[in-house]
Every structure is written in structure tokens, then in C-alpha cells.
Simulated assay, not measured.
Amino acid sequence: MADLNMTPTRVALLRGVAAGQVDHHRTWDVKKPDYDVWKWMPGAQRRVTTDIAKLRAAKLIEVGPAKGPSMYASQPWRLTDAGRQVLADLDATANAGK
């Protein structure tokens, strides 16, 4: 497993990335940092920039291609092989107790 404490929030966020619910957004204003949004249910979203940075540093996720032609188009986060393995290990552990 990754060298990151996989809290329930990080596990849920990793599952959100796997489901295509998390996007990276670039800003026009150089004074405002880029940010990441998790659309975890219709009509609801949450900024998750800090947790995304930790998942990326652990090499569990990577940013995908832009959703449009503009350099400011949002980009989906996607799992790396390591991220898929973490989720598989978590699922195997959960199913072992059943």
C-alpha cells in the first residue's frame, strides 16, 4: 500500500477519482491557485485540493487530458496502477471479513 495514511476521506476521494468525479481546474488569475473539485453527488461539490495533492504525491493518481481545447479546460484526475492496487487491496481486506 502507499506510504500515505489512507483515512476514510482519502479512500472515498480515491473512489471518487476512480468514478470520474474529481476534476482539476486551472485559473486565469495568476494570484489564485489552481484547485480540485469533487462532485460527489448531483448538485454537490467540495474542494479537495489538499487531499488531491497528497494522493498525487503518493503516486496514486495523475491528471488526465483536458476536457476541451482551452488550456483552462478542466482535467479529470485518474488512478495510476498504484492507485488501482490500493483500492483492490482495500476491497480484498473488506471482503475477507465477510
Rank of each mutant, 00 (worst) to 15 (best):
K31H: 15
A44R: 13
G43W: 02
A44M: 13
D36H: 08
A57M: 11
W38Y: 09
D34F: 07
Q45N: 14
A58C: 09
K39D: 05
D29C: 07
A57G: 13
A57E: 15
V37W: 01
D36N: 13
I52M: 14
K32G: 01
D51V: 02
D36E: 09
K54H: 12
K31C: 06
T49E: 04
V48K: 01
A58T: 04
K39S: 13
D34S: 15
K32L: 12
Q45C: 11
V30G: 08
D34I: 06
R56D: 14
A44F: 10
V30K: 11
P33R: 09
T50Y: 07
A44G: 11
W38T: 00
R47Q: 05
I52D: 04
W38K: 03
D51H: 14
P42M: 07
A57I: 06
P42F: 07
G43P: 01
V30E: 11
V48D: 01
W40S: 10
D29T: 11
K39H: 07
A53P: 03
A53M: 10
P33S: 13
Q45V: 04
T50D: 14
Y35G: 00
G43F: 03
Q45A: 14
D34R: 11
T49W: 02
T49P: 01
G43V: 08
V48E: 05
T49V: 00
A57L: 12
T50H: 13
V37C: 04
A57H: 13
Q45D: 09
R56H: 08
V48I: 02
Y35A: 00
T50R: 13
V30N: 10
Y35T: 00
Q45Y: 10
P42Y: 06
R46S: 09
G43I: 08
I52W: 02
Q45L: 10
V37L: 13
M41W: 03
A53Y: 09
A53H: 11
R47Y: 04
D29P: 01
K32Y: 08
D51F: 05
A58D: 05
P33W: 04
